[in-house]
Structure formats: structure tokens, C-alpha cells
Design a protein around this nucleic acid. Structure first.
Lengths: 394, 394
DNA sequence: AGCGTTTCCGGTAACGTTGCCGATAGTTTT
DNA sequence: AAAACTATCGGCAACGTTACCGGAAACGCT
């Protein structure tokens, strides 16, 4: 006979359904429901790390006392504190950051969204972010959008859901809608943009001066004696493409050279497109004597294609790129480029985040502009201008 | 006159010290302590995200009911569930992953420790890790040791403290003590090693077959007609250095070529050291006709130094490297290397982690060996062997 | 001694979520 | 119609931590 677990009576107990795999009973006397088999009492105790309560129990003090001792709080005697610290050490206690974060709603984690970590520019930028973040005690969680808008959105949402303290983002090429990084979508989490930014969002930004960099390389080519400078630009819709084109045009205008439309190509950055543009230029009655590729990979494409066509660089055609990766110094001839300082960009983005965290509501979003440096190598040295006396970066 | 906040009497109240910046009183009647100024009642309500209780209150149901509805639990009616889902959507509710993690002690986060994210090998490996992790719903937290043992240890501890579900690590060069990745130090968190592993720890590992790769390139050089093959190895203490040397020696022995000690150099991977070793070889009465650099950066160093010395590659000296980065195809001449498949290594490490999570105690640590593929380019094509008919990877 | 003060520790609640179980109304079976 | 059952929902507790405050003993001063 089944006895009620509450009033211990057996007569008044009757069955009351079968629920969650167990027979259920109801005591008519005390009106109490219960199931027969008592819980299996967690046969296999889940492997737990030492908690503050374990330390407290070991010493016979309250958990809050242990917390105070370990956090250097004042309301505690020196002897008690020493004892607690010692026991905590013995038990190998480490605070549970999850619980701390839940309590304080600070995770000390920064979320970073980039298009592709395999591209040296972003890898270096992340390194810069991490250096600054680590010094301030922040961890970094990295997501790649792989240039997909949908992935970017889901990355941002996942990071926000993880309650990161801030979000550093460089948008994918596909991204045209920026609702997912707006304040209401990010629920007050500070968002810092770098490299590819959006003017739709009122946030702190770190951008590079595309106009200036393009102006520098173009001016350098002109100083080297180039007069018919072609530009291998990207899609006209892309902001970086427009800015670099503008810098190029400004330099041309400054030196009162003619602007030749047949020497401007907008491509999609694929190698085949770059080579096709090159061949079109070479077929002109008056081929260019210099080419500015606004993308360093396409600059490599050009160098290789030119070599295959037995056209000497820089004597017949000078070539300059944009973005000074390790490879630019490795290829033969060395590629003249603009060093975009990705490490600094990352550092600066992280610093802006720290600033925003510190100043809270007082923080005024501002845009930080990183200016690239011209790095002259052989690919542009036609030797007719003063730049040939620059120290070479081989 | 001050009244006791409990019994409302004023006569029995007397001052009882000054604590935490506020005057304190004690009621003699009811023996109750209190301070005068009541707490400022959080003047600025901390910006909170919508919680499950907010949704519950909006509908007049219990929080647990909301939880059940949102998690697709069964004990709920379809109408209630729909209403809850709708309100949750309206209030823009997103579950707090911190609270979920605290409750479930699962963070769905993998910690990754690598020496340097800027090195293409690791950037690609991380990409592989992330792809597999993301598909399984895991996030990735990345730390760089920058080849420092101390940094590595602190990274590991920080990740463990963050309660990551698993740890994927490639040790720094400095690391000789592996206590920080042993089970007791990691408190049961699964640890997977990749690339640079330790045999001291009984963990799942993904390694690349250094011996086989070295054997392949050396055999290739021999087939190309090389007979005096030098090896530019790393420090003798380094495992990869020893393994690649062994593969090299095995190939030499297989073809019954003499092992020449003067053609073996152990360097510290710096460019100057590589060039010094090269010059020493060139000064020999019988210089080598091929060089195997066990590190791709040093292979580049050699190509550049040889070019500066007007020594033709591969005619006079063939050069092969190890690790097929993007640059190997860009440099002139293209560098023959072994593709180590870093992406696969990352994928495999992540898969081993998932396996271990799934199988729990039943998981048997195993070592996964990734075999590299020979990638032939111009730098090794002396044209005397069958390999010259290989399809070139330009 | 009497009163006010300081020191130090314990208890409670809350962060947000979910598992477990009890309660209740309505429905079906005997 | 009583007994047995089902479908739903509410409440409690716990994950680990810490802020806040009350209690009590020790201390200091007149």
C-alpha cells in the first residue's frame, strides 16, 4: 500500500494519472500529489569546479565573507582574509566568470566581425585589437562574415546575445543595410566601425584615408615621369573605389595631365578581370606607361601577367598597388604600395571602444583617420624623378 | 527626531556609529539598526535588455511558462505558446546566454590558443576551426601567445576561467612545461592539440606528417637530378625540425646518396641566419645543387639572396620550402613546397573536439595525421627527372 | 559604568534562466 | 458518478557571485 509522503496516511491515497514516465498519486486527506519513485538524486554528480561556497564551507564562514576576502574588500579582518586566501589556493578556486558577468552585466569581452581572417590586412588588424584589448583586460571573440551579409547579421546577433561589452566591425562587401548595427538593434552595446564603415550609423569609426593614399602613389608615378597612368579600380558602387579614384584624379589634375577615360577600368577584383583590363590597355595605340591597381592582389596579377608578356616593369610600365602586405616586398620586382597600417587601425578601434566604455553617455562618436605611407620599391622606379633617391624597402 | 523604521518609536533611537558614509542609528526598543538616508533607489535605472520575466509580466503568466513556450517544451498549449512568442517578438526578447550558460554550465564557446594570428598558417587553421565550430553552433574565442610561454599559460587560464567548453591549442616555441594543459589544470575541459603537440598530455591531437613531407620534397629534388642537397633546419630541440630532418635523411638513404654533414645547418629561422648558412655553403669547394628549407620564410630568404648573388634558380641551385602559403606562388621563381592543409588541420581539430563533447567519458584520445602534398613549381625544376612533367602550379 | 563607535561577519536578495514538481480544471474511463 | 487520467500552468530552487544591510562583539571615551 502506498503511503502519502506528506501525511503518511495510506487509505486516502489514490492514483492520479501517469505523468513524465512515473505513476502519480494523490492523497485525498491532505490533498497532496506525489509520484512513487523518488528522484534518482543525481547518481552521477556533475563535475563541478570549486565554488565560493566550497571555500566557505571548508572554513565554516559565509560565502559573502569569502567573496569579500578574495576581492580585497575592507570589511574583513586580516587573519580571516589570509585564511580564506590560503584555503582558496589549496582548493584551486577560480571565480566563475559567467556568474560574475551575469551579476555585473560586464563580460570583459569584445566582439569583432571581419570579412575574412585569412586576409593579412584583417589578421593584422585583429592583432592590433587584441593587443590593446588584452592590456585593458578584455578578451576578444572573432567572427568572420566571409563577405556575406546574412552571416554578418547573424554574427552580430550572436555576439550581442553573448552580451559582449562592445562590437568592432568591418562590414562585408554585400552589406548595404545597416540596421543590425544600429543602437536599438545592439541594445546599447557600443559599436565601433573600422575600415569599411557606414555613415548611416552614428558611431565611432576608424577609416583610412583612401583619397590621400591614392594621391600619393599617383603623384609618385608622375614624379617618376609617368604621363599616361591607368587605374585599375573596383566596382563604382564601392566607397573605397570611389575615394581612391578621386585621389588619383586629383593628382592628375594637380599636374595638369589629361584625364583619359580609356585608362580607367572598373573590375570586380578577380584575376581574370584584371588581366583582361591589362590586355585591353596594351592593345591601345598609346598604352599606359604606369598602372595604379587599387587592390594589392590585382597588382600582383598585373606583375605576373606583364612578366608573361615580356613587358619590362618598371621601364615600360610602372605598377603600384595599395596595401603593403608582406608579399609586396617578396615579389620581383618589389611592389610600390601604400602601407595602410592595419595594426594601427585595429589598435585605434580598440582604443575608441575603451574610451566609449569609460566615458559612457558623455562619449562623442568621432572618426579617426589613418593616413597611409608611400612605400617605394622597384616596380615604380622609372628613375626620372626625385623619388628614385628614396631609400628602398626591399 | 529620528523614528525607528521598524517600530516607529522615536524616543528609544540613539546613534550607533558612522558606517559606509552614513549615520547609523539603533532602536533600543526593538533592537534594530538602521541608517538615515534610505538608498538612492538606483536613480539611473541600468539599461537592461528584455528578460523572460518582462515577457511573463506582459502576459500575466509565469516566467517558467515563457521559458517552456520559447524552448519548444511540450507542457504548454498552442494558443499560449503563440501568444508568448508574439509578445517576445514585440518586446525584442533575446535570451541571456550568460544566464543560460550559468545554468547549464555550457557556454558553446571554444577557446583557441595559437602563437600568432598574423601567420597565414594559423589564420587559415582558425578559419577551418571556425567553419566546423559555427556549423555546430559554437563560437570561437581566440588568443595569441606571441610565442611566449607566460602568455600562453595566462591565455589558457583566462579561457578556462571563461568556462569555454573546449580548448584547441598550438603551443608556443618556448613551451616546454605542459602542466597548464593537463586535465587537472583544465578542470575537465577537453583539450585538443594541433600542429605543435605535446606527448606529455593524453589528449586528442592533429599533427602533420613532417617526416613524410620532408621525404617527398627531398625525393623530388633527387628525381630532378640533385645530388648534393643541403637542408636548412631549425633548432635541434624543435620536434618539427627533427622530424623533417629525419624525412630528408630517409630519402637520401633510400637513393643511397652520401649524407654530408657540411650540408646541414641548424638555424634560428632569422633571415640573417639563413643568409649566413647559404654563404657558408656557397663558399664550399663543392656547393650544394639544391637546398631544402624547412621553413617557407627562410626559403624566400634564400631565393632573394641567391638572386642578389646572381645564382640561377633552379639551374645552379634548386630550392624547396615547406608550407604552401599564397606567397609561394607569387614569388619568382615559384617556390616548390609542401601544402600542409592548415584549413583541414583546423577543421579536424574542431571535429575532434565535437567528438569528445559528444562521447564524453567514452572518448578515446586519438591522433590525427594530416599528410602534406607536394606542390611543384619552378624553383626545383632542374628538368632532369619525371617531375618536370608535373602540372605546374603557377 | 554608560554611551557612542568601530570592526567584522552572516544573511538575504538579485542577476536571468530552466528543471522539477505540485496544483487545478477539465476530460475520459469504469 | 466516482475514479482515473490529461493538459496546462504556477511556484520553487538552483547555477555562482556579490551588493547591501543587520547583528553583535569589541573598543574607546567620558
Amino acid at each position: 500500500m502506498i503511503k502519502c509522503t506528506k501525511c503518511q496516511l495510506a487509505d486516502s491515497v489514490m492514483r492520479a494519472g501517469f505523468v513524465r514516465g512515473r505513476q502519480r498519486y494523490q492523497c485525498k486527506a491532505c490533498n497532496f500529489h506525489f509520484t512513487d519513485e523518488k528522484p534518482l538524486a543525481v547518481p552521477e554528480r556533475k563535475r563541478r569546479q570549486t565554488t565560493i561556497s566550497d571555500v566557505a564551507k571548508a572554513l565554516g564562514v559565509a560565502p559573502s565573507t569569502v567573496s569579500r576576502a578574495l576581492n580585497g574588500h575592507s570589511d574583513i579582518s586580516a587573519t580571516t582574509r589570509q585564511a580564506i586566501i590560503e584555503v582558496a589556493r589549496q582548493l584551486d578556486y577560480h571565480p566563475n566568470l559567467l556568474a560574475q558577468s551575469l551579476k555585473s552585466s560586464e563580460t570583459y569581452t569584445i566582439g569583432v566581425v571581419i570579412p575574412d581572417i585569412e586576409r593579412p590586412f584583417f589578421a593584422t588588424a585583429i592583432s592590433g585589437i587584441q593587443q590593446v584589448a588584452a592590456e585593458a583586460g578584455y578578451r576578444v571573440m572573432i567572427c568572420q562574415s566571409k563577405e556575406s551579409y546574412a552571416t554578418e547579421v547573424s554574427n552580430v546577433q550572436a555576439l550581442i546575445a553573448s552580451r559582449v561589452d562592445g562590437l568592432l566591425i568591418c562590414h562585408s562587401r554585400e552589406t548595404e543595410n545597416f540596421d543590425h548595427v544600429k543602437p536599438q538593434a545592439c541594445r546599447g552595446v557600443p559599436v565601433i566601425h573600422f575600415d569599411r564603415v557606414s555613415n548611416e550609423v552614428d558611431s565611432a569609426k576608424v577609416i583610412l584615408d583612401d583619397w590621400n593614399g591614392a594621391f600619393q602613389v599617383t603623384e609618385h608615378l608622375i614624379e617618376q615621369g609617368a604621363r599616361r597612368i591607368a587605374i585599375l579600380a573596383g566596382p563604382e558602387s564601392l566607397l573605397i573605389s570611389r575615394n581612391r579614384l578621386a585621389g588619383y584624379l586629383s593628382a592628375i589634375q594637380k599636374y595638369k595631365l589629361p584625364i583619359l577615360d580609356e585608362l580607367r577600368a572598373h573590375i570586380d577584383f578577380r584575376t581574370e578581370s584584371a588581366v583582361a583590363a591589362l590586355d585591353a590597355w596594351l592593345a591601345l595605340p598609346n598604352p599606359p606607361d604606369a598602372i595604379f591597381a587599387i587592390n594589392y592582389v590585382n597588382a600582383f596579377d598585373l606583375l605576373i601577367a606583364l612578366k608573361a608578356r615580356h613587358i619590362r616593369v618598371p621601364e615600360e610600365v610602372a605598377v603600384v598597388g595599395f596595401g603593403d602586405e608582406f608579399m609586396a616586398s617578396m615579389i620581383e620586382p618589389g611592389l610600390t604600395t601604400v602601407n595602410l597600417h592595419p595594426y594601427r587601425i585595429g589598435q585605434q578601434a580598440a582604443r575608441l571602444f575603451l574610451e566609449q566604455i569609460q566615458q559612457k553617455e558623455q562619449f562623442q562618436p568621432r572618426t579617426f583617420v589613418i593616413t597611409g605611407d608611400l612605400v617605394v620599391r622597384q616596380s615604380s622606379l622609372k628613375g626620372k624623378g626625385p623619388a628614385s633617391f628614396f631609400k628602398l624597402n626591399i
